[in-house]
Simulated assay, not measured.
Amino acid sequence: MDLSATGEPVIVQEDTQVHVGIDIRPGTLTLTRNGKDFAVYHALVEFASVHGDPWVAQEAKFSAKGPDGKSVALTADLLNEACDGPRAGVPAAIWKVVALAATSAGDVGITYAAPNRA
């Protein structure tokens, strides 16, 4: 190989949003909407950092199979209306998915802690 290198490379995240996709083992997460159960097989979590503030999870999009076997997309908004904290009523299992996605995103500088739910 005719290459040489100097310096210490650093990843710079210029965009203030990062989308992290993770595959979910079938049968381990079921979301219910309007009385119908949906078996989740993939999640895409959107994280954001504004002006260097800590990363926060904004939204989780789920790919799931419905009772009829057809694929559907389900979205969970994770920030409250004022965008200054977590939305009330988000199931703990969804926050676990967010934590798993944050772990996967560690190499772009995302550090994440689940919100305190009083």
Rank of each mutant, 00 (worst) to 15 (best):
P54Q: 02
G85P: 14
F62A: 12
A99R: 12
C83D: 12
A118G: 15
R117Y: 02
V40I: 06
T75G: 05
N80C: 04
Y41I: 00
A92E: 14
G27A: 03
G21Y: 01
V98C: 06
A101Q: 02
L3H: 03
E14D: 09
I24K: 08
P67G: 07
T75H: 06
K96Y: 02
A39K: 09
D23K: 15
T6F: 01
T30I: 13
A93E: 14
G85S: 08
D37L: 01
G35Y: 11
A64L: 11
D2F: 01
P115I: 04
T28R: 09
A76K: 10
G69E: 14
Q13L: 12
A99C: 06
F38D: 00
G27R: 07
L78T: 00
I22G: 04
V18K: 13
D2T: 06
G7D: 03
R25Q: 11
R33A: 08
E46D: 10
R25M: 02
W55V: 01
Q17N: 07
L29K: 11
R25F: 10
A102T: 09
Q13D: 05
F38H: 15
K65P: 06
T28Q: 09
A99M: 03
E46W: 06
V10D: 09
G85R: 09
L79P: 05
V40F: 00
S4K: 15
H42N: 09
H51E: 15
W55K: 01
L74I: 15
S71A: 07
A99E: 11
E59L: 14
G52H: 08
A5F: 15
Y112M: 02
T111I: 04
D53N: 07
S4W: 04
P67R: 10
A5Q: 14
A92H: 11
I22F: 05
D23N: 08
L31F: 12
L78I: 02
A93I: 14
I24A: 00
A82N: 12
G52P: 01
G69F: 07
W95H: 10
A92G: 14
